[in-house]
Design a protein around this nucleic acid. Structure first.
Lengths: 333, 333
DNA sequence: GTGAAAGCGCTAACAA
DNA sequence: TTGTTAGCGCTTTCAC
């Protein structure tokens, strides 16, 4: 910057101001400075700027995995909301593991993000402490934590799945199976399974649970689980899955075996992936509005960070309403 | 840090060293310092560290979109390779647009990344200049640029698609159609189309091209394009798609119309998405080894950044060999 | 609208 | 093994 200052015959301070759109610099002076900077191939060093101004321009986010269209959609929503505000997303992948999450949160906090977005409402004690101590806005997403760390943009995974069970019951299903949602990291999946179990019980329905192994859930595992189920003694008349990917795997297994869907077997998934809307038959699913979760989180943070409320007032809870999308795969007989 | 120093009765410098695993500090001193730091809820400020040491610990990467399992896989491979080296990935999304890419590259360079990974080999002139001036290692991926900016980890999209055309020809297809690959941003898609056209010509095959609109390509658009094709005058006997997602959409359209695949219509995609391996029938595709592209890029950068070769020697070109995965959807009659 | 002085929180370089 | 000094490249603050 001082090189530019010399070349332009001004002080470094004026050069600094020339780069800020809202700073008061003579129009001609600014143009001259910017021109010289471009010619010199100068690239602003935000590292130094961040240190001095104590603002990193970062919003950090942890997500379980990128290889999941739902979380990718949330990130897209978040990113679009940040971009306009001149904020940069700093992403970390937890791989569905709260210990990884703790390490990641610590690592991300070292970069002094101005806000932190986490997926899910369950964390290690130390992770909670780190988030609380950071004195920056924190948003938990994709969940409705009992004891939120800060703000919340999410929904009850259990309630959403219960809604799906009701729909299947109303469509005539009596012997249900749930595929996925083991308690090995994916707390949202586990919550969905809980919601399934309690609603199935409440309605007096027969039900079975099939495990899938460690997340992320793949289509192939869904197919394998379905094969296991079909090779067993008692056959369900409807299968609910922790995600649409597993549900599609289930559908393909039915296709391979010549089982009619929904005639002989109803299938439902979760997440409203593109796949659910185009497969033959189309899959009944729950749309959790993944993009909106990101977009609303971004809007919330933009508002908090813009407003000069360093210690934000009351933590807000934005309830997302997951939508039941009924399709061919659960059409009543 | 100076607070911790006071509490521990040492100098700030010793505290600083205590946080570096390889620095020489008395074992007891270090333990004491780390304990005090944890109690005080201190979190290391890498902003300041980065400025002073002129090392950001960032590797920046631009990708067209996260909502694409291929790029997500590449990022995963890259991220895993970085993580162990204490490097952080800084991601930007270009949305398949070189002007966006230019803006993004400039923005990312302000963070002073230690290396830069870009998707594709075509950039605006200014973007090229920025990358060249940055004097950091640059890697172009998913392509084989004619005039590389720096290192390359990729393959020829045209050649890969030509390979697929040969396979279809050998399987008995004579009237081909290619769906996707318009020249509106997705240069890799456009290259695939070029490869298709030149090989189809070379083999003396009839062919048609169907556009899809702006990327990213979705399953639905594949289905729509196929409907358009089927409603036309001349019918192909094989359809090649710019991606597996479009190919799956094509398959569903055939299913809806009762067209037998591969009996009446062969289908092939690109990318080796999970979907291709599980759909009924399974889809013939090209595996570009997306994860490996990321992993090898990461390994390359780790090596360069570890080695004290600030100005790296000869730019390396890592050719990835895309693999033809033949499946049911193109089984010979 | 512009400039001078000071310093953000850490660490390179050197000294002990 | 530990400490001292200076400074990374910006921007805050205050002065003009």
């Amino acid at each position: 910057m001082s090189d530019i200052a010399k070349a332009a015959g001004v002080s470094p301070m004026t050069v600094s101001r020339a780069f800020k759109a809202d700073a008061s610099v003579g129009k001609k002076t600014r143009e001259k400075i910017l021109k010289i900077a471009e010619e010199m191939g100068y690239v602003f060093d935000s590292t130094a700027s961040n240190l001095r101004s104590q603002k990193s321009g970062f919003v950090a986010a942890t997500i379980p995995s990128l290889n999941n269209a739902n979380f990718a959609d949330t990130v897209r929503g978040l990113n679009e909301a940040m971009r306009d505000k001149g904020l940069q997303l700093l992403l970390g992948y937890t791989d569905y593991n709260v210990e990884n999450e703790e390490r990641l949160i610590e690592q991300l906090l070292r970069r002094r993000p101005e806000a932190m977005v986490v997926t899910g409402g369950r964390h290690t004690d130390r992770a909670r402490r780190l988030l609380l101590n950071a004195s920056i806005p924190v948003v938990e997403t994709w969940d409705l934590p009992e004891d939120p760390v800060g703000h919340t943009v999410g929904f009850s995974n259990a309630d959403a799945m219960a809604q799906l069970v009701e729909h299947l019951h109303a469509s005539g299903a009596r012997r249900l199976a749930f595929i996925g949602g083991d308690d090995n990291g994916d707390t949202r999946g586990a919550d969905r399974r809980k919601g399934f179990v309690s609603k199935a019980r409440a309605l007096g329905l027969e039900y079975r649970l099939v495990s899938l192994g460690a997340p992320p859930v793949s289509m192939r595992e869904g197919a394998r689980a379905m094969a296991e189920l079909l090779d067993g003694d008692t056959q369900p008349d409807a299968v609910l899955c922790v995600s649409d990917l597993a549900a599609f795997g289930v559908l393909t297994e039915c296709q391979r075996r010549g089982i009619d869907v929904p005639g002989e077997m109803m299938i439902a998934g979760f997440g409203a992936f593109d796949l659910a809307e185009i497969s033959v038959p189309t899959l009944t699913t729950i749309d959790a509005h993944a993009y909106d979760i990101g977009a609303r989180t971004g809007a919330l943070l933009a508002e908090i960070l813009r407003g000069d409320s360093p210690q934000d007032g009351a933590p807000s809870i934005m309830r997302i309403r997951p939508t039941l999308k009924v399709s061919r795969s659960t059409a009543a007989k």
